[in-house]
Design a binder for these strands. Structure first.
Length: 556
RNA sequence: UGCCCGAUAGUAUAAUGGUAGUACGACGGUUUUUGGUGCCGUUUGUCUUGGUUCGAAUCCAGGUCGGGCAACCA
């Protein structure tokens, strides 16, 4: 297999490890979400990285739920995370939970106490924070730092036994209160929380902190490369300190820059606010950057994987253009989406010279990108059609290749028509366009010799079905809502959703399949929404087509 | 005024001491029964100042700018 793409820095590290036969050539990564929310496109980057690297080097990837904080975690999230990873196309080796290791972790903590490297501190959260000092001033010990090993052992056991209320005591590592790295100033290992855990129930009332759970879990699983985001860089010395003092398998931590995308937000906290405060309909609202939102919007797993491949991996802060994500989904859907016709803002077109009582069935190819056009479907034609209101102009500029008085266009898959007349209501709104058709110009057997610049889509009025169509735009009006003044929610785009209640769609679209992509010709890519029923069809616009004409109009 | 990470076209990302390339975007052309797609082309870049070297985006030193770190969150 030829690998044209150059390696990223993580792959280089692994290749170096492999060439040194570190870990006997074994590569084991893990994807470690906390089940406290839904996965988003930023997690997709991490998933593609962790699973992708393992695949590339014949390794494996564990799915590990980092569930050490019982108050935020729920089974609903566990299930959605599992589904999203599968949907993206990845298969994990083992499904594990940090909570599986609570007993082991407790034992490791006891071992540290016995070595005189951990102590129980009775200070309040405020007192501890105060005694830690600041980045420029060293911390000072609390009175409890000098406790004996025996006392610590007993106290920690009592903590586990539930003899103290929440917050009464914590277990801390005894490292260095004067370290320039704040994370080394006797970090907390355990806190008391009398809370129900989604897996361990009420068995525990003390729970390990991230720093005393994550690296240890990596080590227990013999993870070789523990890949996380940049904000954990300052934790790495602590990660390594625990491994060294505990003398356990030396997993190593590597960090990359998390994904940021413009016109959206990517923190779980903010996404949760959007959901809870009903700015969106749920975690899977098609405007959300969540995996479930993108899925409902009509994004394909391949397009997201491809996106993650294209954005690359590095250690510098980044803000990726939404246009790249859009490119990736268009690229994918262009190859596969069935072409269909739908009219969203209809105006009536009447063919005055079409023989009375005549009816025709036109043929439309399913996909011009596919071999032999991907087959074809029937499209009923008639003397009365719906066309897009924007495809007619009373006073058309010279580069407007559509309909206007005296102008000719091709009706896609049908005839060339010429506009002879039109009607307006009292408000000047066009109510009807009257055309004559060229009988010899039928698609596939055109002998008219007439060439027109424009082709427009249409739906036969007599045969049209109706559907609700939901048009989505970017969720925020500014590129980086998180960096703006004030609350990020002030920057929500008020026009992020437009609902068209009664669009006209060609009859074949009545059979539209959920999960398939459709291209509504000249309009964009669409998919069937979860809310859709055979009686009341609902489509989501995944993304528009590139629109050179819209740009042209915008310029002038 | 501590410690850590980073800085290459508009946005990302390569070049690992030897011709600064690729993708997206933008712009222009061409093809087209989708103003889509495809194809062709154009545009714009090594944060700064020194040093090492025949040669520096790359190595070294100082500076500047951006980000992170003082949760009983992860």
């Amino acid at each position: 297999m030829t690998e044209e793409r150059s390696s990223n820095f993580l792959e280089e590290i692994i290749e170096e490890d492999l060439s040194n036969n570190r870990n006997d050539g074994r590569v084991l990564t893990r994807f470690p979400p906390e089940p406290n929310g839904y996965l988003h496109i930023g997690h997709a980057k991490s998933i593609c990285l962790n699973f992708g690297i393992a695949q590339k080097y014949n390794g494996k990837t564990n799915l590990r739920f980092d569930d050490t904080n019982p108050t935020t975690e729920e089974t609903e999230y566990v299930n959605s995370i599992r589904a999203d990873i599968h949907w993206l196309g990845f298969e994990w080796d083992k499904e594990l939970y940090s909570s599986d290791y609570f007993d082991t972790l407790y034992g490791l903590a006891v071992a540290l106490i016995k070595k005189g490297l951990a102590y129980v501190d009775d200070s309040s959260a405020e007192e501890i924070a105060l005694a830690k000092g600041t980045p420029t001033e060293p911390g000072i010990p609390t009175p409890f730092r000098a406790r004996s090993v025996e006392d610590n052992l007993l106290l920690f056991e009592n903590m586990k036994a539930g003899k103290y209320p929440d917050g009464a005591k914590v277990l801390r590592a005894k490292i260095d209160l004067e370290s320039p790295n704040m994370h080394l100033r006797d970090p907390l290992m355990y806190r008391i929380k009398h809370a129900h855990h989604h897996r361990t129930g009420d068995k525990w009332c003390i729970y390990p902190m991230y720093d005393f759970a994550h690296g240890q879990s990596d080590s227990i699983e013999n993870i070789t490369h523990s890949i996380c985001t940049l904000e954990f860089v300052p934790h790495r010395p602590l990660y390594e300190w625990f491994i060294e003092k505990l003398d356990i398998f030396p997993s190593r931590q590597y960090e990359f820059a998390r994904l940021n995308m413009n016109f959206t937000v990517m923190s779980k906290r903010k996404l949760l606010q959007l959901v809870n405060e009903k700015y969106v309909t749920g975690w899977d609202d098609p405007r959300m950057p969540t995996i479930s939102g993108l899925r409902r919007r009509g994004y394909t797993p391949a397009s997201i994987r491809n996106f993650c491949e294209r954005i690359g991996v590095a250690k510098r802060e980044n803000l990726i253009d939404l246009s790249l994500l859009e490119f990736c989904i268009r690229e994918d859907l262009n190859k596969t989406a069935l072409r269909r016709m739908a009219v969203m803002d209809p105006v009536k077109l009447v063919i005055t010279n079409y023989p009375e009582g005549k009816a025709e069935i036109m043929q439309g190819e399913n996909n011009p990108e596919a071999e032999d056009g991907g087959g074809s479907r029937d499209i009923p034609f008639g003397p009365e059609l719906w066309i897009e209101r924007e495809d007619f102009m009373e006073e058309a500029p010279k580069k407007f290749f559509r309909l206007g008085p005296g102008l000719m266009v091709r009706l896609k898959n049908a005839y060339i028509v010429k506009c002879d007349d039109f009607m307006k209501d009292d408000n000047g709104r066009i109510t009807e366009i009257r055309c004559s058709y060229i009988p010899e110009s039928k698609s596939g057997s055109d002998t008219s010799g007439i060439h027109v610049k424009g082709t427009i889509h249409w739906v036969s009025a007599r045969h049209a079905k109706t559907a609700e169509i939901r048009l989505y735009d970017r969720l925020f009006r500014v590129e980086n809502p998180s960096s703006e003044e004030g609350d990020f929610k002030e920057y929500i785009n008020p026009d992020s959703l437009t609902v068209i209640k009664n669009a006209f769609i060609e009859p074949d679209l009545g059979n539209a399949q959920p999960g398939l992509g459709y291209q509504f010709i000249r309009k964009g890519y669409f998919s069937v929404d979860n809310d859709s029923t055979p009686e009341a069809l609902v489509f989501n616009r995944t993304v528009t087509l590139k629109d050179a004409w819209a740009k042209e109009v915008k310029k002038s």
